[in-house]
Simulated assay, not measured.
Amino acid sequence: MTIIHPTAIVDPKAELAASVSVGAYAVIGPHVRIGEGTTVGPHAVIEGRTTIGRDNRIFQFVSLGAVPQDKKYAGEPTELQIGDRNTIREFCTFNTGSAQDAGVTRVGDDNWIMAYVHLAHDCQVGNQTTMANNATLAGHVHVGDWVTVGGLTGVHQFVKIGAHAMVGFASAVTQDVPPFMLVDGNPLAVRGFNAVGLKRRGFSVGRVNAIKQMHRALYRKSQTLDEARAEIGVLGASTPEAAPDVALMLDFLQAATRGIAR
């Protein structure tokens, strides 16, 4: 049966799976749905149209599903969707989406989100990401799978961070960060590619070498972006095992809207 501390306030219309636990003084609103095995810590507030999946660990003093910090918000029924097996540490704040975008803020599966992280309206966060303490994502930010965002980092609205990228401590991310890259600083600069992260994830030598060549094409040859894209485009044929990585990079460069970090 659901374990709800007697001091918690859970609206009768909220939908909590049988194995959910809710800590002392937590508050859960009427439009909230929480899946099996998820634990909600004391003093957490979960409100709005918020859907949370299975086996999440939500720590004390978290605020999930509050309305956007957007002056244009006019009470539209926007949402927050959180997947499975996420760890969400103390004092995190995730807002619902806005009518100016898809209307949904999304967090995928297996993310490790440390204390004081803010996800603004319409952020789209993938799977297996790590966000260190005080990372702050402004509205409409997209974060790919396996991204690491260092502590005290600010990400400008509408920025995209590609899969497997790593953003260092206390960075100011104002431009799109291509997949696999290692960036930090204020102003932001590309320092290399995320070799250690790729090794830890089991990337083969051939794939890592192809990613190294993509980094060189973008950042070491004084080429225009179009010239770099053309060079990257032939890597998939010469290194078939890296073809998905090449496609990921080309798709990202095509979709980049704020210019890439260089």
Rank of each mutant, 00 (worst) to 15 (best):
T130V: 15
V173N: 03
D110Y: 12
Q157A: 05
G185N: 03
G108M: 05
V147C: 07
T174M: 11
V159L: 03
D109L: 10
R200P: 01
K160G: 10
H142D: 13
G151V: 02
Q157F: 08
G97W: 07
V104I: 15
V159I: 08
M114K: 00
G139P: 01
H156V: 01
V104N: 07
A165S: 10
P179R: 05
G103H: 11
F158H: 13
A165G: 02
T174V: 14
T129F: 08
M166I: 12
V107C: 02
Q157Y: 09
Q128F: 14
F91L: 14
T96D: 02
S171I: 05
G144S: 11
L137A: 00
V155T: 04
M114H: 05
A170T: 06
N133I: 12
S98D: 10
W112R: 09
N134H: 15
R191I: 08
G154I: 02
A132N: 13
D84M: 04
A189E: 15
G197C: 09
Q175E: 12
T130A: 11
T130Q: 08
D145K: 11
M131Q: 09
Q157V: 07
Q124M: 05
D145H: 13
L137M: 12
G192T: 07
S171P: 00
L182S: 13
H164L: 07
N111M: 05
L152T: 12
Q175C: 09
T136N: 13
G154E: 09
A120H: 10
L119P: 00
V177Y: 06
G97P: 01
L152M: 14
G150Y: 01
H140S: 07
L119N: 00
A172L: 11
A170R: 02
N134W: 08
A138M: 03
V159R: 01
F94N: 03
Q100C: 05
M114A: 10
H140Y: 13
F193H: 13
T130G: 07
V104T: 15
P179E: 09
P179S: 11
N133A: 14
A195M: 09
S98L: 08
N127H: 15
Q100M: 12
V183Y: 07
V173I: 13
T93I: 10
R191K: 15
P187A: 08
A163Y: 07
I161Q: 00
A165E: 01
D109C: 06
Q124W: 06
I161L: 12
G108P: 14
V107L: 14
V149T: 07
A115T: 11
G151Y: 00
D184M: 12
A189Q: 15
V107D: 02
G162R: 05
V183W: 06
H164D: 11
H121Q: 10
H142M: 09
H118E: 07
L119E: 02
P178H: 06
D101C: 03
H140I: 08
Q157H: 11
V125W: 03
T87H: 05
V125Y: 00
L137S: 02
F158T: 10
G150C: 08
G151W: 00
D122G: 14
L188N: 01
